[in-house]
Computed example of a mutant assay.
Amino acid sequence: MAAELLANACDHAGGVRRLAIQHRDGLLDIAVTDSSPLPPRLREHRPGAVGGHGLFLVDRLTSHWGSRPGGGGKTVWARLPLPH
């Protein structure tokens, strides 16, 4: 999940400013901050396409994800439940 968020920041948002990973209460929170104020867009998934699966995977494999603006850019975050 971190690799997908990092790749999206590099490919679509001018690069990574910060990566934060936190484990608490059985959850793993991953947050990537970039310099683009444009929020990520979940597009229609096209299984036969060579690329464009990043946010689809994030959406399907996390319990929650989203973005928040800040500092002239944004932070895209994802939350995953960890096995017990």
Score class of each variant (00 low, 15 high):
1 M>G: 11
1 M>H: 14
2 A>K: 15
2 A>R: 15
3 A>R: 12
4 E>G: 00
4 E>M: 13
5 L>N: 09
6 L>E: 11
7 A>N: 03
7 A>R: 15
8 N>P: 03
8 N>Q: 11
8 N>A: 12
8 N>G: 13
8 N>R: 03
10 C>N: 13
10 C>M: 14
11 D>V: 08
11 D>M: 14
12 H>T: 12
13 A>C: 15
13 A>Y: 06
13 A>W: 03
15 G>M: 02
16 V>C: 01
16 V>H: 02
16 V>A: 00
17 R>S: 08
17 R>K: 13
19 L>G: 09
19 L>D: 03
19 L>W: 15
20 A>I: 11
23 H>G: 03
24 R>F: 04
24 R>V: 02
25 D>E: 15
26 G>I: 07
26 G>M: 12
27 L>E: 15
28 L>T: 09
29 D>F: 15
29 D>S: 15
30 I>Y: 10
30 I>Q: 14
30 I>D: 07
31 A>I: 12
33 T>L: 03
34 D>E: 09
35 S>N: 10
35 S>P: 04
36 S>W: 00
37 P>E: 01
37 P>V: 08
37 P>A: 12
38 L>D: 13
40 P>M: 00
42 L>A: 12
42 L>S: 11
42 L>V: 05
42 L>E: 11
43 R>F: 09
44 E>R: 14
44 E>Q: 14
45 H>M: 08
45 H>Y: 14
46 R>D: 08
47 P>L: 09
47 P>E: 01
47 P>A: 10
47 P>G: 04
47 P>N: 05
48 G>T: 12
50 V>F: 10
53 H>T: 07
53 H>S: 06
55 L>P: 02
55 L>K: 07
56 F>E: 04
56 F>K: 06
56 F>N: 04
56 F>L: 07
56 F>C: 08
58 V>Q: 02
59 D>C: 10
59 D>V: 00
59 D>P: 07
59 D>R: 08
59 D>I: 00
60 R>M: 05
60 R>Q: 14
61 L>T: 02
61 L>M: 11
62 T>C: 14
62 T>V: 00
63 S>W: 11
64 H>R: 13
64 H>L: 08
65 W>S: 03
65 W>E: 05
65 W>C: 07
66 G>Y: 13
67 S>F: 03
67 S>H: 00
67 S>V: 00
68 R>T: 04
68 R>Y: 04
69 P>L: 04
70 G>C: 02
70 G>H: 09
70 G>N: 05
70 G>I: 01
70 G>M: 05
71 G>F: 05
71 G>I: 03
72 G>I: 04
72 G>M: 01
72 G>E: 00
73 G>H: 02
73 G>W: 00
74 K>W: 02
74 K>M: 06
75 T>L: 06
75 T>K: 04
75 T>I: 07
77 W>L: 01
77 W>G: 00
77 W>Y: 13
80 L>W: 10
81 P>F: 13
81 P>I: 06
81 P>L: 14
82 L>G: 05
83 P>R: 11
83 P>D: 08
84 H>G: 13
